[in-house]
Amino acid sequence: MRRPARTGAALVLLALVLVFVALGVWQVQRRAWKHALIATVEGRVHAAPVAPPAPDNLAPAAVADLAYLRISVRGRYRSGPDILARAVSDLGAGYWVMTPFDTDTGYTILVNRGFVAQDAKPRAGWRPAGSVVLTGLLRPSEPGGGFLRANDPAAGRWYSRDVAAIARAVKLGPVAPYFVDADRLPGGDGPVGGLTVIRFSDNHAVYALTWFVMALMSAFGAWRLLRPVRSLAD
């Protein structure tokens, strides 16, 4: 390779070194952010329950920042059919049982009361009657669908817990822009609550190492191209 071409290729590799180092540093920063997020969520899950945020002027970004907040509120489950959303849990394939809950403070929350198997039939005692205290974890809405399938409100087929779409489809009226995963209730009759899976991917260290190795390889390639070339006479 002639000298100008070698120099041009080396400059490209040096530019890639900068890019790869920047990507590696970004992944290190992402790893620190992810570990802080995990610590925050762990603290929320095991903390004493607090009152849920009122839905007035609650932006979607604010709901995301409150994910997995442990809440407690008194109210009543609304009568009427439950909404079933397709689910796969540690207990197998089935449905999440979604029920509107009218709080004593004047707003409605959609509650995931728990998991039921595909062949489960509603029984007496499934839904607590009268005034009850709801405790559980606040979850952001899941718009669109899941399982590679879109929700079909007209047919009543739900593949995700899309709060706004469910509220429109079954005419719930105004609801909070989040749902609550209810804690497991004592006794074995009814939906099984308390099955929230809290898992965060944490591959940032591997990604950072990969980018830094690629930076070293690019730097080595640039050095090989820029080092003096000895002639055959030498």
Rank of each mutant, 00 (worst) to 15 (best):
R3L: 14
A5R: 12
T7M: 11
G8I: 14
A10C: 11
A10D: 03
L11C: 14
L11E: 06
V12K: 10
L13T: 07
A15F: 15
A15I: 13
V17R: 06
L18E: 04
F20R: 04
F20C: 11
A22K: 15
V25F: 13
Q27C: 13
Q29E: 13
R30S: 05
R31F: 02
H35V: 01
I38H: 01
V41P: 03
E42Q: 12
V45S: 01
V45E: 00
A47P: 05
A47K: 06
A48L: 13
P49V: 01
P52E: 00
P52I: 02
P52D: 02
P53Q: 10
A54S: 05
P55L: 00
D56P: 00
D56H: 05
N57C: 06
V63Y: 05
D65W: 03
L66Q: 14
Y68K: 02
L69I: 03
I71Y: 06
V73L: 06
R74Y: 00
R78K: 08
D82I: 02
A85G: 08
S89H: 03
S89E: 08
D90Q: 14
D90K: 15
L91V: 02
M98D: 09
P100D: 01
P100Q: 05
F101E: 00
D102F: 00
D102C: 01
G106L: 04
L110G: 00
V111C: 09
N112T: 08
F115C: 06
V116W: 01
A117C: 06
A117Q: 11
P122G: 08
A124D: 13
G125C: 11
R127Y: 10
A129E: 12
G130W: 02
V133Y: 12
L138A: 07
S141H: 05
S141Y: 05
G144I: 08
G145K: 11
R149F: 02
N151V: 05
N151Q: 09
P153E: 03
R157F: 06
R157G: 02
S160P: 09
R161G: 05
D162G: 06
A164F: 09
A165C: 09
A165R: 11
I166P: 02
A167D: 08
A169V: 08
V170A: 09
K171M: 03
L172W: 06
G173T: 10
V175C: 14
P177W: 14
P177A: 14
D183I: 08
R184Y: 07
R184I: 10
P186V: 12
D189T: 15
D189Y: 06
G190Y: 09
P191Y: 10
G193R: 03
T196Y: 05
I198G: 11
F200T: 14
S201T: 15
N203A: 13
H204R: 15
A205Y: 13
L209M: 14
W211T: 09
M217D: 10
A219N: 02
F220T: 03
G221R: 05
A222M: 08
A222E: 07
W223D: 00
W223H: 03
R224A: 01
P228D: 03
S231L: 06
S231A: 12
S231T: 08
S231M: 01
